[in-house]
Computed example of a mutant assay.
Amino acid sequence: MDPQVVDLARTAGTTVVTLMATDTWNRARDGLVALWRRVHPERADQLADQLDATREELVAARHAGDELSESELTAEWQSRLRRLLVAEPALAEELRRFLEELAPADAGQPAADGISMHATASGHGRVYQAGRDQHITEG
Rank of each mutant, 00 (worst) to 15 (best):
R96E: 09
A61H: 05
L73Q: 11
Q78M: 09
L91E: 09
D23S: 13
A75F: 05
W25D: 03
L32T: 08
R96P: 00
R80I: 03
A34W: 12
L32R: 00
L58D: 02
R96A: 06
L84R: 10
E101R: 14
V59N: 02
E76L: 10
S71V: 02
L47F: 08
L73S: 10
L85N: 05
A92V: 11
E56Y: 07
A12Q: 02
D52I: 12
H40V: 04
N26D: 10
L32P: 02
T22H: 08
R37M: 12
L68Q: 13
A12L: 04
E70T: 14
S71E: 08
R29T: 06
W77H: 14
R37I: 09
E72P: 05
E70I: 11
L58A: 11
A60W: 05
P41Y: 10
Q78I: 01
G65A: 07
R55D: 04
T14Q: 07
A60E: 15
D45V: 11
G13R: 03
Q46C: 00
R83P: 03
P89T: 13
R82E: 15
A48Q: 13
V59L: 14
W36P: 04
L81V: 14
R37S: 15
R29L: 10
R83S: 13
R62N: 10
N26E: 15
E94S: 14
A53L: 03
R27V: 15
H63D: 12
E70W: 02
R27H: 09
P89S: 11
R29C: 14
A21M: 00
D45I: 05
R27M: 09
D52F: 01
A28K: 07
L81N: 08
A61C: 12
E88S: 15
L84E: 09
R83M: 12
A75H: 06
L91S: 04
A90W: 11
E100S: 09
H63I: 01
A44N: 08
Q78H: 01
V33G: 05
A12E: 04
V59A: 06
A87R: 11
Q50Y: 01
F98S: 06
P89C: 11
L99M: 02
L47A: 11
W36I: 02
G13D: 02
T14F: 04
T18N: 07
L35K: 09
V16A: 14
Q46W: 01
T14E: 08
T15M: 10
A28D: 12
A87M: 04
V86Y: 09
W36Y: 13
G31A: 06
